[in-house]
Simulated scan of single mutants.
Amino acid sequence: MSRSLRHGALAATAIVFSIASLAACGAGNDAATLQVRPDSAATTSGDISVQNANLITQPERDAEGPAVVSATLFNNGTQKQTLDTVSLPGTSASVKLHAAKGSGPIEVPAGGSVVLGGKGNASAVIENGREAAKNGSVQNVVFKFSTTGEVPLGVLVVPATSFFTGFGPSSLPTAPSKPATSPSNTPSGSATAGAGQPGSESDTDVPGDGESGVPSQD
């Protein structure tokens, strides 16, 4: 094969690959590029790095229940730190922190990491999720650590669907309905225990004061 033919073959091959790549990008919901997890917020302050941060709401738009802040917290320092608070500036929502085990603080070990959200992990729960920002918007979140202090960043608000299903909140349990009052087991008008029962003495059978119940002897 001549040099010009070889060059032509290489050029044709490059064009085929380019077309294939463009086709994959525009192939719709089944395109490989759409299977990549969406970008999430990340920032670094001092020894602390916050990555994959999102505010995840209920999967249904109008569902009542909590929301959560999901993130991975990295401690690049030589001393452990605790996550003291997570707050949402500009809202009245409060965030409750829960360690993965026990009731102590959420500790980020030196040279280690902690995941917020997901089964078996620590959690940052917004009890009234409706007070959080709307899906698709960006909400400011401030993580406050024991040594590094406040680490603010803007996170995307997303529903607990698709990639975020396993990290989202659970719906609040429905309060059980009040059971109907059952009738008393004691029939109406029945005698109280010990009165008129077999083997018991009624008031009329009890001797009066000073009486022995034994006939007197003249």
Rank of each mutant, 00 (worst) to 15 (best):
A180E: 12
P207C: 03
S146E: 05
L172S: 15
N75P: 04
S2Y: 06
A110E: 05
Q58I: 04
T13C: 15
I106Y: 08
V206I: 14
A31H: 06
P169C: 08
T181P: 10
T204H: 00
A20Q: 04
T44V: 13
G210K: 00
P207I: 06
G196T: 06
S216L: 12
H7K: 10
P215N: 13
A9H: 09
L5E: 15
S184D: 14
P207M: 08
A27D: 08
G118I: 08
T147S: 13
T186D: 09
G28K: 06
D209Y: 03
S182D: 11
S123H: 00
G168E: 08
A67F: 00
L10V: 15
S113N: 11
S18W: 00
N121T: 12
E107V: 11
F143C: 07
S45P: 00
F17G: 15
R130Q: 13
Q139S: 05
A175F: 02
V158Y: 00
S170I: 09
P176W: 03
D39P: 00
I15L: 15
F164A: 15
A53R: 03
K178A: 11
A23D: 13
P198I: 04
S45C: 07
G149C: 04
T186S: 09
V69Q: 02
P179L: 04
A191L: 13
P109A: 07
A132E: 02
G194T: 05
V86D: 07
L34T: 15
G120S: 03
P173D: 09
S94D: 11
T204A: 14
G168C: 11
V206F: 05
I106K: 07
V114L: 01
I48W: 00
N52P: 01
L73T: 05
D218G: 14
L88Q: 09
H7D: 12
Q79P: 01
V16F: 02
R37H: 04
S137L: 13
G166K: 11
G117P: 07
V151H: 05
G194D: 01
A32I: 06
S184K: 09
V114P: 03
V50Q: 02
I126N: 06
T44G: 05
S94G: 15
M1T: 10
P173Q: 06
Q58Y: 02
A175N: 01
E211M: 13
L88H: 07
F143G: 05
G189Q: 14
P66V: 07
F163T: 08
A133R: 03
S212G: 08
G136D: 10
V214L: 12
A132F: 01
P169M: 05
G46R: 02
F167P: 00
A195H: 06
S182W: 00
V125M: 03
T57Y: 00
V95C: 12
A31S: 15
L156Y: 04
S87L: 08
K119N: 10
T148C: 03
V214R: 08
P105W: 14
Q51T: 15
S94E: 14
P159T: 10
A124F: 01
T57Q: 08
H7M: 05
Q197H: 12
E201C: 02
T33M: 10
